[in-house]
Design a protein around this nucleic acid. Sequence first.
DNA 1: CATGAATGAGTTTTCATTCAT
DNA 2: GATGAATGAAAACTCATTCAT
Lengths: 210, 210, 210, 210
Amino acid sequence: MKKNSKEAIVKAAILLFNSKGYAGTSVRDIANLAKVNSASISYHFENKAGLLEHCFTHFFEQYIQKMENAYNSIEKGARACLKQVAGDLLQFQCENIQLASFVYREMSVDSQVVREILSTYSLKEKYYFQKIFERGFEWNEFRPHSIPYLIIQLKSLLMMPFTNTHYMREVLYIFPNEAFFVQKYLKDIYLWIDKTLCSDIPIRKGALIK
Amino acid sequence: MKKNSKEAIVKAAILLFNSKGYAGTSVRDIANLAKVNSASISYHFENKAGLLEHCFTHFFEQYIQKMENAYNSIEKGARACLKQVAGDLLQFQCENIQLASFVYREMSVDSQVVREILSTYSLKEKYYFQKIFERGFEWNEFRPHSIPYLIIQLKSLLMMPFTNTHYMREVLYIFPNEAFFVQKYLKDIYLWIDKTLCSDIPIRKGALIK
Amino acid sequence: MKKNSKEAIVKAAILLFNSKGYAGTSVRDIANLAKVNSASISYHFENKAGLLEHCFTHFFEQYIQKMENAYNSIEKGARACLKQVAGDLLQFQCENIQLASFVYREMSVDSQVVREILSTYSLKEKYYFQKIFERGFEWNEFRPHSIPYLIIQLKSLLMMPFTNTHYMREVLYIFPNEAFFVQKYLKDIYLWIDKTLCSDIPIRKGALIK
Amino acid sequence: MKKNSKEAIVKAAILLFNSKGYAGTSVRDIANLAKVNSASISYHFENKAGLLEHCFTHFFEQYIQKMENAYNSIEKGARACLKQVAGDLLQFQCENIQLASFVYREMSVDSQVVREILSTYSLKEKYYFQKIFERGFEWNEFRPHSIPYLIIQLKSLLMMPFTNTHYMREVLYIFPNEAFFVQKYLKDIYLWIDKTLCSDIPIRKGALIK
DNA sequence: CATGAATGAGTTTTCATTCAT
DNA sequence: GATGAATGAAAACTCATTCAT
């Protein structure tokens, strides 16, 4: 009778989890919005936690894919590759604002699922960032610096518009869903890469010989 | 029998709100942890929402105070003042990691309280940042740039360690509660100020005369 | 694909009804164990209650059959006949431990089905016992006694190993499914018949003449 | 406001668990009958299983107490003591027909609680029976016999009226709650003790000397 | 101030059953 | 015959709050 009730559930869940939080959203709310019976949620996702996990993996599976694809341009140089990564991830998040927003929020609560996500996807992501930074140091593109601290900064810039959507909209009047947001914000991230990450490269011995 | 049951409640609430989220924490959980009767919470804070609001205002009242104090050093120059602001806020957040962490998370859900906070404290904060940036442009200390976009970047750097505590600890092995974290991370923020915000200042007429 | 799904359902039902009780077993549990679709149960037995009724009648139909057959040896004397009955019923229950066990348990809850079973099979069974006891009194084989009270005692001995399986196994270490259980336990029942039912027969007038 | 809601819950639970079975009884049913809010059940007994456990221990605690007390008359001889035990337990069960009835039924389902009860109370009970039988053999009061098999028989006689209440009432027209039931049924149990357990004592050497 | 009991509304989950395929 | 999806009803349980003590 109903065609894609599973899809409808996920869509409704993302919307509600985003606006009211996972714990603040009831299974009934989701079912009502999705116009399905609330038992369908248990049927398709086992339980509420299963629905959350589905959202998580749905998000991070794509996220890591984008990362991997962008990483493949490493041969064009670390700086170019990092810019590619930043652009692609920003774009991806913008295309899934609500999902990104609520996933990042729920990743900050203590739970088994979160730990699992961290130990799979976040570690993979870290691995790629590490590779790029190491290449950048090696090829003298980036100023030497602690990799974890660089990751914090880059990730902070990439995530901010999605972890603070209300602040963005109601205080700064910046709307990440608008047409040119990615373009404009990406310029600032490039600036951080060019100015903070790449400037004042110390001249290395090897570099001179080369 | 119990001396400061109110204090104990707040302490327990911050801990639990942080690890399980506001909606995911029950009044009984808090009462148990604080070793008080759950009716006490209604007594002291009217209801659960009142306890949340108390945490919010308790946090932002101090936050804005720090901001104001640091802003008073504006006469030493915009760059120095901004560094002062960044340092003080970072320090303050580090001294209240759990509180900061959970407040920032709950600020991203839709609610009346959140809107009120945004329209009072966040606007005030924005006002100060704006003043500093305008001074920086005027005195030719900062490269001209969209103020909202600068605020995003600066705030993203300042908030990241507290919006992603699990990621920080379990993936990057950076612990914001450790001794030298503020010192080390502040250097990177200074770098952003110096390199991204201040470098390549275009020569202005007025500047030359001066 | 599946050959005798009906049989598989009954087998699974008996197992689960026995270990978890009728009300404690879900249709899905049965379907999963039987490796059939849960809709099949409705198909074959109308509904869950129908499956229960099937189990009941399946059990009692055979039970009464055994009783009837054994009763036919009444001409050999009441004592011999009673021993035959006891032996055959004990044997039958042992061959269907799980079924007997759960049927006896469910017979103690209030329900329409139970009342129907009582008013058909139990009454029939009582009729045969009555006949045997009456013959025993008449032929001076049994000490005169209240028939209902004799039925209680005999039935209690016959049912005990199946109404208290856990106790039998885990406390007394007697396993009714083991090879010589019937043989050993039957001896005790014979003893009750010989010692308690038959001993100290008072000399009746009629008996003397005979 | 409400006086003894806890007591009311237990009373209602025993009645309903007895007539509909534990799994067949809903918490709401109990709450309605007890005229309390259904949340009270969770409040007083944690959850439905906790209420069951309370009934179990409430029953067996008293049961074992009766057993212990009766066992203290062992000096009067094993036979007299056993009769005392049988009488007291029968009396106790008759005073708590519904409780005894449902407890015995639920003891036959597989669960953690049941295993715990078996391994505490049933083992204790077995211990006392064992002591009495051993004394009986030693003092030449009882015909030597396998103790577990004797326990089955005695317990079967003691439990029957409570494991098959419907059968008793609707088929045999024996009502265990009626005035003289204990008296009448106890006679039959004494008969079993005297005739089956004690008769035909083989003459032992020691006995002769004595 | 503090507490234990109680409650009504709301939560998630389970269940037996139905139905189109 | 058999199945996967779907559903309404009811289940157990949780929760914030109230109130007499």
